[in-house]
Design a protein around this nucleic acid. Structure first.
Lengths: 231, 231
DNA sequence: CGAATAGTGTCTGTGAGACATTATCTT
DNA sequence: AAGATAATGTCTCACAGACACTATTCG
């Protein structure tokens, strides 16, 4: 007897983070369907898995992002799976949650001002539907934890960046200031970045900064790079 | 229109690890139901989520372990969620996989010789059904990764242990020898263990070793304990 | 020139790793 | 006492953190 059991609802949700105006921000979408719970509320993008269309939950997550933001996603990883009888009024549900990082502050197609879509500072997200508050908290734990030992925060900025910009994103994510010399030493030791072409001058005064991009290794896996400093 | 989509199959699978005879071993069960795929094959314990009975997937995992091993589980954590159209012949499926660690070598109820249940060295698991080989590989990655910075491997041995036993389990999991002095310094710095009562004499000769157990903190969360050494 | 930002050099304390030494048991 | 294992002490070198210093641009 194959699958005699009642099947739970299966959805994917995505925590999309970026860096805008020096702040870590999360993407919220306004729930539109009047037949579904929390209609009108702002929550994390998500939706049902479509078994005819999606290869797996990761591709379902990409489809959700395509549909709701139309933009390009720099990094996507599975975060955690939330489940239970109580988390969704529609019934016993499983939500496979993904974490997406996209570059901020210079229009990469994510249409931040599109109707029904908005960016919110991660510490200013209001009342979120379902268990989205717990999901967001877990995503922040993950990003902050990985920031201490991986190149992951680099996906929050443009693919070509200066040392200042790279260190700045780590400082925002980790919530502490870093020492430029120590930061460079650690990043260089891990061969996490390589020089890019050209030079860019700073906005006002000062010596122009060299440009860099993530190394091929850093783009594909996140080695045990230790970047955190003492509290 | 609530849930107009075809719902995937939702199962849980559990990678149960222990330490027996100085080896890291995984629990396999023989698949019994002739109506289900891979009947007769040895694979990871798992089963359908029962929405009437299970609070969430973690409780489904505990139920699966109760039913198939009857034993006590020292540590249970979510590992990863595997999904897709191709991984299960019964159809598009989602499997929420858990990692369980149990103490080995001194009968704690897990009935290792029960019919249809067996322990296998993790590097000698044969042909596994579904994507269980990939699941096991991911579990080993997780355990080895966490061994470098947490008290997690301690759940593979008895709750009261000696320094030798604790260091031994780390050596087996990490696959390298450790220095006793350095190991003690790091573990003590993290206040991971506390003395237990009594003294235990060694099997043959030598000074008897003091007994210890995990501290309350280490039992509940896995702090950033750094225990690995250089390769 | 001075201001501003980029980037490098150097000192020092901590602690990991290695290994020597002491302690306490069995036979 | 000899042998075995437990437990602790000590040395050294690498490196993280701190900060001073040099470099290169703009106005």
């Amino acid at each position: 007897m194959t699958a005699p059991y009642i099947r739970p609802i299966v959805t994917v949700d995505v925590v999309v983070l970026t860096l805008r105006a020096g702040q870590l921000q999360v993407l919220e979408v306004q729930r539109q369907d009047a037949a579904e719970p929390f209609c009108g509320a702002w929550g994390l993008p998500g939706g049902y898995v479509h078994v005819e269309e999606d290869d797996d939950t990761a591709s379902a997550a990409r489809r959700v992002l395509r549909g709701k933001t139309g933009g390009h996603v720099g990094h996507l990883e599975q975060l955690y799976t939330f489940s239970g009888a109580g988390r969704d009024p529609r019934g016993w549900s499983v939500s496979v949650v993904y974490l997406a990082l996209v570059q901020g502050d210079d229009g990469m197609g994510l249409r931040p001002d599109q109707a029904g879509v908005r960016w919110v500072n991660v510490d200013e997200a209001g009342e979120l539907p379902f268990d989205h508050a717990a999901i967001l908290a877990k995503a922040l734990d993950r990003v902050r934890g990985k920031a201490a030992y991986s190149s992951l925060p680099a996906f929050l900025i443009a693919p070509v960046f200066t040392w200042s910009e790279l260190m700045g994103v780590y400082e925002v994510v980790l919530g502490q200031t870093l020492d430029a010399s120590t930061f460079r030493r650690k990043v260089e030791a891990q061969m996490m970045i390589v020089p890019a072409h050209g030079q860019r001058r700073h906005t006002g005064a000062g010596r122009p900064a060299g440009l860099y991009r993530l190394s091929t290794d850093a783009l594909h896996d996140f080695g045990r790079v230790v970047l955190s400093e003492r509290a």
